[in-house]
């Protein structure tokens, strides 16, 4: 009894520490990003900008770049989810046991291709719109973590729990929706978060095929020898990636079923 009480105490302490950490992250991360951006703003203000710099580093440009990058990342992530989650579910069904390793291998190759190469391939061969091509390319790129998260999440569900559900007369679909998916959610969401960060971060590559994003600030800055523009673009892209991870963490906390 005392042993049990101690265990529970420890669990409570552990949980409390984790809650504290989560709270710290909840305010700390956006605060740090805001401070970095403010510092950059003040620095840019203090500089004498030449004509070219003044043309590249504008609020309108930054706002548009951020908007494009977020839009591309969201579409890419959505597309990834629509493809990878059902695929992951299908591949963990008993009838797919044979083909699952093959699909995983293909997905591995997909991620192994350099992202920029993939983008140019999609752009030249499939679609001639920069942002659509980026969405497609990013989605192909991000499928693997989500697919893996879905499959691992489903595979780690205790067989006994599934058997109990079937034994009480739940149909296969009901077991999937009511038991397997909720229990797979934590691991699945980790995959989604990885995909989100990956797409936000690599969306800058869209600039190479005319898709905008902070990448365009970086490329023009580079082309015209204006490091300040490169720095602003880089900070913007990094801030977005960090915030994406932050949002992902919050979503994970919110959607994780109680009792796990």
């Amino acid at each position: 009894m005392t042993a049990l009480a101690l265990d529970l105490d420890e669990a409570v302490v552990g949980r409390r520490q984790r809650t504290l950490l989560r709270r710290a992250r909840f305010v700390g991360v956006p605060l740090a990003v805001a401070l970095a951006c403010l510092a950059m703003y003040l620095y840019v203000q203090s500089q004498d900008l030449d004509n070219i710099e003044r043309r590249i580093i504008t609020f309108a440009n930054i706002r548009r770049a951020a908007g494009e990058q977020i839009e591309i990342a969201l579409w890419a992530t959505a597309l990834t989810l629509v493809i990878a989650v059902p695929l992951g579910i299908a591949l963990t069904r008993p009838w797919a046991r044979r083909i699952a390793p093959i699909v995983i291998a293909v997905a591995n190759i997909g991620q192994g291709i350099p992202a920029i190469g993939l983008l140019f391939f999609v752009y030249i061969q499939l679609v001639r719109s920069g942002s659509t091509a980026t969405v497609l390319g990013m989605a192909i790129y991000a499928i693997l973590p989500v697919l893996r998260g879905t499959m691992v999440g489903l595979q780690q569900v205790d067989r006994g729990v599934v058997k109990a559900a079937r034994g009480m007369g739940m149909g296969k679909g009901e077991v999937l929706v009511r038991v397997e998916m909720p229990l797979a959610v934590p691991i699945l969401l980790t995959g989604v978060r990885t995909a989100l960060v990956l797409t936000v971060a690599t969306a800058v590559l869209a600039a190479f095929i005319g898709g905008g994003t902070f990448g365009s600030l970086i490329i023009s800055g580079q082309a015209q020898g204006r490091p300040l523009a490169v720095a602003v673009g880089s900070l913007g892209a990094a801030s977005l990636a960090i915030l994406a991870d932050w949002v992902g963490g919050i979503v994970e906390d919110l959607l994780r079923p109680k009792g796990l």
Partner: peptide, 22 residues
């Protein structure tokens, strides 16, 4: 089989409670 199983209680060895449900 699903209808049949609702007419029979089943306790599996690993108990198999749903961890995400009260």
């Amino acid at each position: 089989p699903d209808q049949l199983r609702r007419r029979m209680g089943y306790v599996i060895q690993q108990i198999g409670l749903f961890p995400h449900q009260t």
